[in-house]
Design a protein around this nucleic acid. Structure first.
Lengths: 157, 157
DNA sequence: GGAAGTTACTTCAAGCCTAAAATAATGGCG
DNA sequence: CGCCATTATTTTAGGCTTGAAGTAACTTCC
């Protein structure tokens, strides 16, 4: 096979959706695993609980469980369990909404807020470190392409 | 803020590692969830089991559990359970390696091979469909950048 | 006001996943 | 040969996740 044909084959290869998906999955998985391990070993914290706390931290007021489940893109039952464990740990407070007694709203306790601030700082540093091998141009390009990909997926479902 | 400064801020924003990671995670999660749901509803199959079968399908001969766990990037104990369930379903065969009695090697049964071929065809189509909104150039660029990202992560760990 | 439908959350069963401890077989090495 | 370290797998405890079924509170509409 000559150089031109090799290039053609490689180009087709790089554009192959299945290969793209495998690469996307592998990369995301690798990062997630690493962050998960570090959260566990440094703070005895899990990534799902950290993510939940992050939602509470950036919200100006308590959030209902349903809203939380939408923002985290997980099922309602899942959120129920995560909040249960965070409440057990004294990091989150659950209260019945006064205007709708079906609804439970949650917020960080002061201990939760303090721990989150510490963890968030470390977490940001870890993510920076993991992507340190990419320059700003690559990061920006990757970010843009991922947004396009996300849009493509949304439209296809 | 003038236009130049807005552009500067936006560029910094797009290059922010944390934002990049959140986007990567969200995209991968969305695709994974969709493929998972379709495998379940169309074939009563889970994504992890499908992935395991894919490894067996492309291997020329039976694979040891340890090798499988490396290729799938999951722990040994995880593979043990997945194989157990696939054996229960008659899709995979587990045998003690003749040259090393500690080692168990697995391969697809003929039923497993047949089911996998059917599923793989559908799966490929689904992935193509999900990424149909990206043209070849975008796909190739995304793939290349993901490879860079993966390398960056590997180097940072 | 009350039946019927909807909405918010919880519970349940099943499966995935990890880290760590336990088993079992191998491979040196004295 | 027999002890010891290593290697391959399994087991266990704990946590995450989903989809489906269940409970309770709210809303609509007559």
């Amino acid at each position: 096979m000559d150089a031109v044909n090799r290039a053609v084959v490689e180009a087709r290869d790089e554009a192959d959706a299945l290969r793209l998906w495998l690469r996307l999955f592998a990369t995301a998985n690798r990062v997630e695993g690493e962050l998960s391990r570090r959260l566990r070993s440094e703070f005895s914290m899990t990534l799902p609980r950290f993510d939940l706390m992050a939602q509470l931290a950036k919200a100006p007021e308590p959030i209902a469980l349903g809203e939380l489940s939408r923002r985290l893109m997980v099922t309602n039952g899942n959120v129920t369990g995560l909040v249960d464990r965070l409440v057990d740990d004294g990091l989150v407070e659950r209260r019945v909404a006064k205007e709708d007694r079906r609804s439970a709203v949650v917020s960080l306790t002061s201990a939760g807020r303090a721990l989150f601030d510490t963890m968030a700082k470390a977490h940001r540093g870890w993510v920076e470190g993991l992507f340190a091998g990419l320059d700003d141009a690559s990061r920006a390009a990757l970010s843009t392409l991922l947004k396009e990909a996300r849009t493509s997926v949304e439209e296809a479902t």
